[in-house]
């Protein structure tokens, strides 16, 4: 089976479904924050927007065929992992920086720690379905 087909079949399908939920949720949340409350907490809301872009890119990268999309998925899941670790740590270390929560605050505790687990699952799946040879 070609690598690109493997990526979105089997358990990859579940992973893509969960990523899609986060993509929609993060996009919705960040659009609302930016439209309705942008001036209240610019830093967390900018991060929310970044998270939304990352989740959309990861979903697309995992779901579409081809090397380019796989690279998109690698980059998105990598950014996501760095994002959740850095933002998670910062949000606990310096609460003043975050007057409002982002999806990555406290390592995604507000979302059942899914945001922390997802990038590991995504990267593991990309590694497993990488082209051999």
């Amino acid at each position: 089976m070609p690598e690109s087909v493997q990526r979105r079949s089997g358990w990859g399908r579940v992973l893509i479904a969960v990523y899609a939920v986060f993509a929609v949720a993060a996009t919705g949340r960040s659009s609302y924050q930016l439209i309705a409350q942008a001036s209240e907490a610019p830093f967390p809301y900018a991060l929310s927007a970044l998270a939304a872009v990352v989740y959309v890119a990861a979903t697309q990268g995992l779901a579409h065929e081809g090397d380019t999309w796989r690279n998109v998925a690698w980059a998105a899941c990598g950014t996501e992992l760095v994002g959740v670790l850095v933002v998670g740590t910062l949000s606990l270390a310096d609460r003043d920086l975050f007057p409002d929560d982002t999806v990555w605050s406290a390592y995604g505790a507000g979302y059942g720690f899914f945001p922390l687990v997802l990038p590991f699952a995504g990267l593991a799946w990309l590694w497993r379905t990488r082209a051999s040879g």
Binding site: G10, W11, V21
Partner: peptide, 24 residues
């Protein structure tokens, strides 16, 4: 969306998609 995504998968992962939807 869950029904469409689940039916496209011939393995049990398709049913797992429904689990996700049922919890969502």
């Amino acid at each position: 969306l869950a029904a469409w995504w689940a039916r496209g998968e011939p393995s049990r992962a398709g049913a797992a998609v429904v689990v996700v939807a049922g919890l969502l």
